[in-house]
Amino acid sequence: MGAVSSIRTFGLMYMRNIRQIPRIPVVLVFGIVMPVIQLSLFGNIFSALGDSPAFQATYPGVAYLSYIAPSIIMLTTFLGMANASAALLVDVRTGYFDKLRTTPAKAGQVIVARLLAEMTRVTAQALIILGLALLLGAHVESGFLGGVVMVLMSVTFSACTVGLLVTALSMKTKSDQATQSAFPLFFVLIFLSSAYVPKEQIKNDVIRTIIDFNPVDYLIQAVRELMVGVNNGGVMEASWPLDKIGLVLGASAVAAVLFGLLNYRVYRTSIEGK
């Protein structure tokens, strides 16, 4: 009975959240405008970068659009998860979150159901961006399955890091502005990586060192390898970098535990007042 009713409660909350996603159109649109602009502009404006000898030496025959498409999918999932707490915050501020706390539903179920619904939304947004990239001429070397894995990996990593951090931040501050002020931090991590330019072509040693220590770059490497493959003697070949994928999923799991505990602590002090 306990487990069944728990899953039922969880399902009820998840479905309620899914139903409400289209009712905050700003979150849906905001999460997709920037990636669409980048995809359609950068792919053209900087396409010459892809034609340079240095680039072609590392990625023979790869179009610049294909190179940045994985980065833009990641940007989409980062942006999307940065808004993961917007709806939760509405509930906290209207007092509805407290109302739910007076029912048999557990706060943990409410929060996790919210996060999973947001992951569903972000997955849809990332798939739209991937579809658009393909329409514009990008190519996924590892095929359809590779494309899906790219998106799911990116969503999982973003949810476990950005998603959980903004959730803790918004429960702590109960403020949209405070939560949004953390956004630039997440994007610096994307820009200080090989997302838009191969590391080999960056001349500045300091930035190259930062890239080596930037966890986000490891995710980008894994996702990009699925997209463009690996250079095997001057020819790009499809690749499934299981070690890199495993690293990303492992890091996601560690982040989920750490930030999950953080959320629990924030919840106890800020919401329960212990």
């Binding site: 509930d91 209207t94 007092g95 509805y96 979150f97 407290d98 109302k99 007076t102």
Partner: peptide
Amino acid sequence: FAMQEVGMDDL
């Protein structure tokens, strides 16, 4: 429990 602030699900 009806709290001091009405708990409305605005959406």
